[in-house]
């Protein structure tokens, strides 16, 4: 019986899309209602982080909203109570950790979000994970998108991450960390496109694997270290296939993707890995319509060091190109 009633309640919502706010909710959305949030700040091992600075603003029907700024206690907790009419944002920082930030919307179409004039669930815990700064190293970083012109289509061309350029004779690069091949076909409509970008590796133990970035809101969005035991693929192809009206396939990197690379490998006489460099390509690997390579990468120049945590105060490629996340 209860399940039947639940079904009847849910069905109108599902059949007719997102529900409208109730009168009480609408009043709260317009003029605000009291919200209580319990911030619980932990590290990646679930240990509380004391004296973390939690600051932000609760959106409100005023010019300045409702800002807040407080430190967590020994349990990593702080409680914020403010009037709020829409959403709140937060940023958590502490020396020795990467900042984590985020935003939460208080109105939820899936349940009644106001009770007794207060946002529900009142006192909900917002668990925020702070990631430590472990051992950031200076890297060759192309953050503002190294944009070398693609010398040619449909052939493999080597790219050197240490110089952010194609290898000779196409550029000034000396050692190919990977090879790129790009093919694009355009139909009668300029949005009828099929393109394939292949990244390939020639050294036996060079390769790449693909990951999703951390979505917790931390500035540290990738793994700290490359997995030296992972399976590194020798080729990886990205496909974009669409008509004027619809995208059929798009496997190119999104801002939430990254690649981990192992390059410049050398083996001993038994085929064991002797030397390698590690790198990551984050969120962008594409060819523009002007045929330029658009790429954001971090290359660790230290041999046999799988560390992928970049020192954000240094850029061995271009000292003036900073502002990148770790």
């Amino acid at each position: 019986m209860n399940r039947f009633v639940l079904f009847l309640v849910l069905f109108p919502i599902l059949a007719f899309g997102v529900r409208r706010p109730t009168a009480a909710e609408q009043k709260a959305l317009t003029h605000g209602a009291e919200a209580c949030v319990v911030f619980r700040v932990i590290d990646v091992r679930d240990r509380p982080v004391e004296k973390a600075l939690v600051e932000g603003n609760f959106w409100n029907d005023t010019r300045k909203g409702n800002p807040y700024s407080m430190n967590t206690d020994s349990n990593g907790v702080c409680v914020v109570t403010r009037t709020c009419s829409d959403d709140y944002h937060f940023a958590v920082t502490k020396e020795g950790y990467y900042r984590t930030k985020g935003r939460k919307v208080l109105w939820n179409p899936n349940f009644i979000s106001i009770k007794d004039g207060k946002w529900q669930p009142y006192g909900a815990t917002n668990t925020v994970v702070l990631k430590r700064k472990v051992n950031p190293v200076a890297m060759c970083v192309a953050w503002n998108e190294a944009r070398s012109s693609l010398p040619d289509e449909d052939c493999l061309i080597g790219y050197d991450m240490k110089t952010a350029d194609w290898v000779m004779p196409w550029g000034k690069g000396k050692t190919a960390d990977f090879f790129i091949r790009y093919v694009r076909q355009v139909g009668t409509n300029r949005l009828e496109i099929k393109s394939t970008l292949t990244i390939a590796f020639t050294n036996v133990l060079d390769g790449v694997y693909r990951m999703k970035t951390d979505d917790s809101g931390s500035a540290m969005r990738t793994v700290y270290k490359a997995d030296t035991n992972a399976v590194y693929a020798r080729t990886l192809a990205f496909v974009y296939d669409r008509t004027a009206e619809k995208i059929n396939t798009d496997t190119y990197l999104t801002p939430d993707d990254y690649l981990v690379l192992r390059t410049r490998t050398e083996c001993d006489g038994h085929g064991n890995l002797k030397k390698a460099n590690y790198a990551k390509i984050v969120g962008k690997l594409a060819i523009t319509r002007e045929n330029k390579l658009k790429i954001r990468f971090y290359f660790n120049p230290n041999e046999n060091d799988p560390n992928l945590e970049a020192d954000t105060t240094k850029n061995l490629l271009n000292p003036r190109d900073l502002g990148f996340p770790p």
Binding site: N57, W59, R63
Partner: peptide
């Protein structure tokens, strides 16, 4: 928003402000 700000995260509006 993600690429245009100065290095080091400097911005003329703080995290505590309405539009962070």
């Amino acid at each position: 928003n993600t690429m245009g700000k100065p290095d080091g995260g400097v911005w003329g509006r703080s995290t505590s402000q309405t539009y962070e």
